[in-house]
Simulated scan of single mutants.
Amino acid sequence: MGMDRENTNQGVHAGSQDEAAHWFARLLDADCPPEERAAFERWRHADPKHAVAYRELEILWKRSAEAVKDPAILAAANRALRREPETHAPRRWLFPALAAGLAILVAAVALPRWLSTSSDPVGTAYMTTAGQQRTQQLADGSSVLLDTDSEVVVRYSSRTRRVDLLRGRAQFSVQGNHAWPFVVHAGSGTVTAVGTQFQVRLDDGATDVALLKGKLAIATQSANSSEQSASLIGGQGLSFDQSGNITPVRAIDMQQAQAWTQGKLFVHDWRLPQLLSEMNRYSYTKVEIADPSLQNIHISGVFRTGDQQTLLQMLQQGWSIRAKRVGDKQIVLSR
């Protein structure tokens, strides 16, 4: 589904950003309990505007890293963080203080950049649910193919074509224009293309990039502001983690890389947990291993990403595995 954010600009930049600032400040507290972190995740996934607002705040926070090196800014932040009421007050007073300190640090470096791009469109979100794939044509003739349970936000301005990958995986087919770069923001880095076709995936804190044709430039930045960069040509790929560390460039299996775009999964000597993890992405019903002895089963073959039933039949016939449904959304495997 798509959502035009231009008509909800006020809502995104007021209510959603205020809520995002509250959650960001709360999660900075080392004593934040698991139930509050779970409540945050529910809030973030309840509305695409929430995810966008929180993602923007994360980006601003990273950009503010240099600000804490300024003694004046650091002192102001410390005063905000340590401000206490004259009488003993409930712990909830800590949250506005944290938010105030956060605002000081962010504003010092990031706010001028934010204001300088205030004329840019807020963005349009496109997303898929579990088991769904969709192709979205963009205004410049480029297109994005979203895999299952994925989301992007597209922001085109006169300076750049920006796409934020918030979750999942996407394949981008980009119309070339050297004067108008196409930049995908994902994880701790950016992927810049001119005219090319490539895939980007967010998975367990890592960002995987696979280039099908053309050229790409990748850049990352760590929390201490150190930068890394790399470039790819067709048939190559790499990964980078949340700290901005880039792996060596590697050759990719083109058939395997393109398989998901055709609803297929090419598997060569995969362990069963890896196969189940990938197949589970395409279904609301999750298959889990109850017997540890099944962990080291190795499997090869071609599977339909949305055909969970055929996978279960194959496992039961080939390895004497029993599949038992234990709820509406859970199936467990045992000997």
Rank of each mutant, 00 (worst) to 15 (best):
M3G: 11
T8A: 05
Q17L: 15
A20N: 02
A20H: 00
F24E: 06
E36K: 10
E41R: 13
W43E: 09
H45P: 01
D47W: 07
H50N: 15
S64K: 04
L74E: 05
A80Y: 03
R82M: 08
T87Y: 08
A89K: 03
P90N: 04
W93F: 15
L94W: 07
A99R: 13
A100H: 09
I104E: 01
V106M: 11
A108W: 05
A110C: 06
A110N: 03
T129S: 10
T129H: 09
A130M: 11
D140I: 14
G141V: 07
S143I: 07
V144N: 04
V144G: 07
L146Y: 00
T148Y: 00
E151I: 07
S157T: 08
S158A: 15
V163G: 03
Q171C: 05
V174F: 07
Q175S: 15
A179R: 15
V184C: 08
H185N: 09
G189M: 13
T192K: 14
G195Q: 04
G195A: 06
R201F: 00
D208K: 05
D208G: 10
G214H: 04
I218V: 14
I218Y: 00
T220S: 12
S222N: 10
S225M: 15
E227T: 15
A230K: 08
L232A: 11
L232R: 09
G234V: 10
G234F: 07
D241L: 14
I246K: 03
P248Q: 02
A259L: 05
G263Y: 02
L265Y: 01
H268Y: 02
D269A: 13
R271C: 09
L276A: 06
Y284Q: 12
K286W: 00
H298K: 14
V302P: 05
G306W: 03
G306Q: 14
Q313T: 11
M314N: 07
A323C: 05
A323W: 01
G327A: 11
D328S: 13
D328Y: 01
Q330Y: 00
V332Y: 00
L333V: 12
L333S: 12
